[in-house]
Design a protein around this nucleic acid. Structure first.
Length: 264
DNA sequence: CATCTTGTTACGTT
DNA sequence: AAACGTAACAAGAT
């Protein structure tokens, strides 16, 4: 499920642990979630450190602890964060648990597409610093976006919207929502959008981003009525504007839903 | 039992 | 070198 707004939501699930000291840690350390991570070092270093703050950027999260410890988390398709009162016994899919005196901070992921990264150092890990700026920041300009699309000119626009370097945090449902609102056919080649389409795409990327964060970021509520979101899941969905049947095909490797009347 | 999945990446080809 | 399409990853839901 996690796209940028859900990522923000899950990041906040660990807020009860802010300012608290870690007193224990358990990991299912053979799971692929931990590939490339020195789990032994994590086990040694975390007890005694304090959770200081956290950030989300696109679909990535970074948790900063005292003692120069940094924990990166990507939720993949089915990852979730939550906190529970202690005592807490980890279940089958609770692959990482950081115990504090009052609560347990839990990362679970049944499908194991998520990823943990661990870093020790004075400053943020390099992979974090290199992440592209948010769609809502001033650096995401129409020109930047147009440039990016030019570099992928042969790719269907739907597939381009899923590229995290250009549209960080956008996932499958957000991409469809953005294209529907921008009135752009998902099969359209990225390099062949006229300047009006580009402008609408840029505006709607930011709009859907902002609205999704507003509705989902704090508590997991659905977007308002009238969003394509509510129609896209099952066959038989209708365009919220025209009430005609939505098209439904795989584009860019993902199920894509659009209205042939709105989107040319 | 078969088919589907809201994410990413490795790999082969162009 | 960069762009692009596809398979693979793993497990649960339908």
């Amino acid at each position: 499920m996690p796209e940028l707004a859900e990522v923000e939501y899950y990041r906040n699930r660990w807020n009860p642990g802010l300012g608290g000291k870690i007193v224990g840690i358990t990991m299912h350390d053979t799971k692929r979630i931990f590939r490339g991570v020195d789990v032994l070092q994590m086990r040694t270093l975390f007890p005694g450190s304090v959770l200081l703050e956290s950030w989300a950027r696109g679909k990535q999260m970074l948790f900063h602890f005292s003692r120069n410890l940094w924990l990166g988390i990507h939720l993949g398709m089915t990852g979730k964060l939550r906190s529970e009162r202690v005592p807490f016994e980890p279940g089958r899919h609770d692959h990482l648990v950081l115990y504090q005196k009052e609560c347990a901070l839990i990362f679970s992921d049944p499908r194991l597409f998520g990823r943990i990264q661990f870093h020790q150092g004075d400053s943020e890990p390099a992979w974090w610093t290199k992440l592209p700026p948010s769609l809502l920041s001033a650096s995401f300009t129409l020109a930047t976006m147009t440039d990016f699309l030019k570099r992928h000119s042969q790719l269907p626009i739907k597939a381009s919207l899923l590229l995290q370097n250009g549209f960080p945090g956008v996932g499958n449902w957000m991409a469809d929502e953005i294209l529907w609102r921008a009135k752009i056919n998902p099969r359209q080649k990225s390099g062949r959008l006229d300047s009006d389409s580009l402008k609408r795409l840029w505006k709607m990327s930011r709009f859907v981003c902002r609205a999704a964060l507003h509705h989902i970021g704090d508590k997991m509520s659905d977007p308002p009525e009238g969003w394509l979101f509510h129609e896209r899941w099952q066959a038989g969905g209708l365009c919220p504007i025209h009430r005609v049947a939505l098209e439904r095909e795989t584009i860019g490797g993902r199920t894509t839903v659009w209205c042939s009347r709105c989107q040319h």
